[in-house]
């Protein structure tokens, strides 16, 4: 596939053109310092320079809070049950490598074993236009440490800024189709441009763990009765924010509801849940398998760096996007927890 080269200021026009015919989501300012993936409308601000990760990751568009699984109608005791599956087409534009990685991991989790039709149908109908990061978004991110910085998987089109230009690289047939009619000039010296971009990438790129990523699952696995867990819940509110903004947290709760007007009709839906919430591991009869916040912190961290990495043979289920630390009002940062675990291993070994 050909790679194209356009001026930076041509990108907003192109995104706007796509948005006239498609539902396009792009990170837009929310409040004083936040960003949200919101539908692009006439006049929406399309810019890449001033950005830090959105409040919730773009992958949540594929598993929205409160999504309906099916609707039912009862006639007497008989019931008609109809699945609600969203097969509408959408484009997520301005997705950064860490969030590409997050979506890739969500894809794997939803494909594993019994495939989740709701997620996968949305995913199949979602095109992604990704944008490379040459400088860390802010002090909270550590995407290079978790191996997400160079993720290209899942992107249909990949944009790389080079000086005042942008390399436009289609990575799938769908990406190529989205570029049809754009009449972008083909870039003649792609590799040289890429090398130039790479040369401009910050080094080191953001925060780095105190141990190589390959060693982290082993380090985390060794620590069950570690003082690190307790240390990092002293200020914890068990509010679940870290789970709910995480690109690879996909736990959910399921609930039924019926219509007030026609009580024989209703729906089953699911909503985001999180393992840091106090009652997450409670069973019927009231026993809670993780009643203390430190138990829950350990579960969250081990899920990212040990349990799911083992299950899916991935290096890390944490993408290093930094959202959990950024959103935590108690200032708890999973990056610090991992480094403390590294220190603690060295101290005890």
């Amino acid at each position: 596939m050909s790679t194209f080269l356009i001026r930076k200021d041509a990108v907003p026009d192109w995104i706007q053109r796509l948005a006239r015919e498609n539902a396009v989501y792009f990170p837009q300012r929310a409040g004083q310092s936040g960003f949200r993936f919101e539908p692009v409308q006439e006049g929406s601000e399309i810019q890449f320079e001033q950005y830090h990760p959105t409040i919730v990751p773009p992958g949540k568009k594929l598993a929205p809070a409160g999504e309906v699984l099916f609707q039912y109608r009862r006639e007497g005791e008989d019931a008609v049950v109809e699945p609600v599956v969203d097969a509408s087409f959408r484009i997520l534009a301005g997705v950064r490598p860490c969030d590409l990685k997050g979506i890739d991991l969500m894809d794997q989790a939803n494909r594993e074993g019994c495939a989740d039709p709701h997620y996968l149908t949305r995913r199949a109908n979602t095109a992604i236009i990704a944008y490379d990061c040459l400088t860390p978004c802010d002090k909270a991110c550590f995407c290079d440490a978790t191996g997400s910085l160079r993720c290209r998987k899942g992107a249909d089109i990949f944009l790389t800024p080079v000086d005042e230009d942008v390399l436009v690289e289609p990575l799938s047939e769908r990406g190529l189709a989205l570029l049809a009619g754009a009449n972008f000039p083909i870039c003649g010296n792609v590799e040289a441009r890429k090398a130039k971009a790479e040369g401009g990438r910050a080094k080191p790129f953001g925060r780095q763990f105190k141990a190589p990523l390959q060693q982290i699952p082993g380090i985390v696995a060794k620590q069950w009765h570690s003082p690190v867990w307790e240390k990092h819940v002293q200020q914890c509110f068990s509010c679940g924010s870290c789970n709910l903004v995480c690109p690879t947290c996909y736990c959910f709760n399921v609930q039924d509801d019926f219509d007030l007007t026609n009580t024989s009709a209703g729906q089953r839906s699911r909503t985001w849940d999180g393992c840091m919430l106090p009652n997450f591991a409670e069973v019927a009869g009231g026993h809670n398998f993780r009643s203390h916040p430190a138990d829950r912190q350990r579960h969250r961290v081990k899920r990212k760096f040990e349990y799911l990495t083992k299950r899916f043979e991935e290096g890390s289920f944490c993408t290093g996007c930094g959202r959990c630390g950024r959103q935590c009002t108690a200032g708890i940062d999973i990056f610090d927890i991992v480094n403390d675990l590294v220190d603690n291993t060295e101290a005890t070994s």
Binding site: Q32, S33, C239, G240, S241, L244, Q327, T329
Partner: peptide, 26 residues
């Protein structure tokens, strides 16, 4: 028995603390 923060995240609210506010949501 979950904190208000759960619904702030579901609504994709900017955290009140990020606006320089102080909040009892947690």
């Amino acid at each position: 028995a979950n904190a208000v923060c759960v619904e702030c995240k579901a609504n994709e609210n900017e955290c009140a603390f990020d606006r320089g506010e102080t909040c009892m949501g947690q």
